[in-house]
Amino acid sequence: MSEALIRFSQVSYRYRDGGREILRDADFTLGHGEMAFLTGPSGAGKSTVLKLIALLERPVSGEITVDGQTLSALRPRAVPAYRRQFGMIFQNFALLPDRSVFDNVAMPLIIRGHSGDDIGRRVRAALDAVGLRGRERDWPVTLSGGEQQRVGIARAVVARPRLLIADEPTGNLDPAMAAEIMQLFGRFNEVGVSVLVATHALGLIRRLPHRILSLQDGQLVDDHGDAGSVS
């Protein structure tokens, strides 16, 4: 693995209007095909790290590269195309309530201009992969929290991105559903998708065989827990 998929070099970030410092000269890499959990005390800025990757925020200093692209060099017009390279999953699911499950999952394909046949096939495959086969016509509000998050994951993977980033995906779910969702990420990782999940569900992720990154004092450090791998 010559080039990392995500690389933070000396990245600093502080909240606007002179707020707290979240990152101070932080370095970390996520390799191609790697899956990692990002943890840290609540309010430490786990979401901020993901927002920096998704270009929802820009660092004060330092360099972030994703799949060989230097983010600071991306012009605003290039941001949508950049965001289409990965799938994002949110704590609040971010589904559109006035659209069916099918239409929600199809959205990334529609913005890419896929044909109707192609969309139908891919959406059904994505829903199948998250265990929601046959629920295309349902409305998001009629689904449980876990099911809604699986729709969110189906939407994130439907365009077959190489990277998934998830911000507290189990934050609104009960433990059993949360474990299911984490296992789902593991299955996508097994087929080669890189995954970065910000979560505070330490008890849950310690049992999983993936790398754990901890955000402490503005640094991203590997957490050598019982199951954590060292890189």
């Binding site: 998704a54 929802l56 017009r77 949508p80 195309a81 950049y82 965001r83 289409r84 390279q85 994002m88 949110f90 971010a94 589904l95 559109l96 959205m107 990334p108 913005i111 939407r155």
Partner: peptide
Amino acid sequence: REEILVLKLIGASDAF
């Protein structure tokens, strides 16, 4: 507004 936010998050272009 919500729909626009989600569309921007998943990488819809301004033209779209």
